[in-house]
Design a binder for these strands. Structure first.
Lengths: 113, 113
DNA sequence: CAAATATATTCAAATATAATAATATTTTTA
DNA sequence: TAAAAATATTATTATATTTGAATATATTTG
């Protein structure tokens, strides 16, 4: 079982527009580097850098097919995470009833609020 | 409905050990700054900075109670996200059957694999 | 085997993020 | 109203991330 600490490190790797876009596409299926070039408006070396970062962190992997390098999704947290990112939340969480007590605070004075 | 772009920005804000710890505690209930000082091993000003960042991004909010400032969770994505981070995944995603076709690649030559 | 194609690597520059240190603000209490 | 308590702000320094440019590698094709 991966520790929360490890998962936060993973989160930092995923929290980037380009890498999220890459992962969204990989959720649909295998893609080679030049497939990514079609929709990512960044240079090929930069795409390779992002792919390499994701791979080093075990998020994706690849196999070679001729001179194409075919990337696919490996870490099962990715679809779940993307689902949460895309989920439509209607309301904010309810504000706490006034005034619950913090650990510190059974506040002694007259409270102004 | 928040765009995926906006959500990735949010993800970047959340992807930090201290801030995740803060949010885990806020899931349990309202906390004032000195409550956080008890378990976060960082300076009070630094705690305030993290809280301020989270608030600027609409993740949390606060009310004042005397001289205590009581923070609470506001964005409903947080519990869902923490649940995914803590979820226990047994296996990797299945590697794709050999060899699905990338957009680019109905590869013409003899494939080495 | 040379040229072409697909992709990767490395280094440096630019930028963003985080922590520290010092100080300020606000509210309460004596 | 001065001191204490709780928290915030600002500027500076340190560190990490991101991109760009140039170049390298691997594989296939002719």
């Amino acid at each position: 079982m991966r520790s929360i600490h490890h998962r936060v490190d993973l989160l930092r790797v995923l929290a980037h527009h380009v890498r999220i876009h890459i992962l969204e596409e990989l959720c649909k299926g295998v893609k080679c580097v030049s497939d990514f070039e079609e929709f990512l408006q960044i240079s090929q070396p930069n795409i390779s850098q992002h792919l390499n970062l994701l791979r080093r962190h075990g998020v994706i992997d690849y196999y070679n097919d001729g001179r194409l390098r075919c990337y696919f999704l490996k870490d099962p947290i990715v679809p779940d995470l993307l689902a949460v990112l895309k989920k439509n939340y209607i309301e904010e969480l309810p504000a706490p009833a006034c005034c619950p007590v913090t650990k510190k605070g059974k506040y002694p004075g007259n409270r102004r609020h």
